[in-house]
């Protein structure tokens, strides 16, 4: 039986079409790059307005998050994602989309257990493990000071 299974596994691998890695990477490259360029443009504009660098970067994130969520609301972000792949997942707009999409999807289950709880089905782990990592970084930094 185990033999059959590994034989079948091989048959499946041979018969299943693969994703077009080159095309996907190309799309991820230009779309992800483009989002970063938009970010750079926002940062530069804010700097020209006289904001300091740190504030400009924070505001850039907030503006990109807003754009990502708005595009999610209009049902456009997932269309972008079909082509862009990781190009629209990895930038901060992808994080925004991962909060907004479940919030929207579970609206019918109410604002507490629907929107409020489901908002974090993807973003929750991100926050949990980044917080954990930051604490570990902090401990090491504190001890090595």
């Amino acid at each position: 039986m185990q033999n059959n299974k590994s034989k079948y596994q091989k048959m499946v691998e041979k018969s299943s079409p693969n994703t077009n890695l080159f095309l996907n990477c190309l799309n991820a490259f230009w779309s992800g790059g483009l989002i970063c360029v938009i970010g750079q443009f926002i940062t530069n504009s804010l700097l020209n307005f006289g904001c300091d660098l740190e504030i400009s970067r924070t505001l850039t994130s907030i503006i990109l998050i807003f754009i990502g969520i708005l595009l999610t609301g209009f049902g456009i972000y997932d269309e972008i994602g079909k082509i862009a792949g990781a190009g629209s997942v990895v930038p901060i707009t992808g994080f925004a989309n991962s909060v907004a999409a479940p919030a929207l999807e579970f609206k019918k289950e109410g604002f507490i257990f629907g929107v409020g709880a489901k908002m974090f089905i993807i973003a929750g782990p991100v926050i949990v493990y980044s917080t954990l990592t930051s604490v570990l970084v902090g401990i090491i930094y504190y001890l090595s000071k």
């Binding site: 079409p17 996907n24 994602g81 079909k82 989309n97 991962s98």
Partner: peptide, 17 residues
């Protein structure tokens, strides 16, 4: 999709299989 996969508006790619 809502029950088994991801929210509809999440920007993911569908694999060829």
């Amino acid at each position: 999709e809502k029950q088994f996969r991801f929210p509809l508006e999440l920007g993911t790619q569908r694999t060829p299989t």
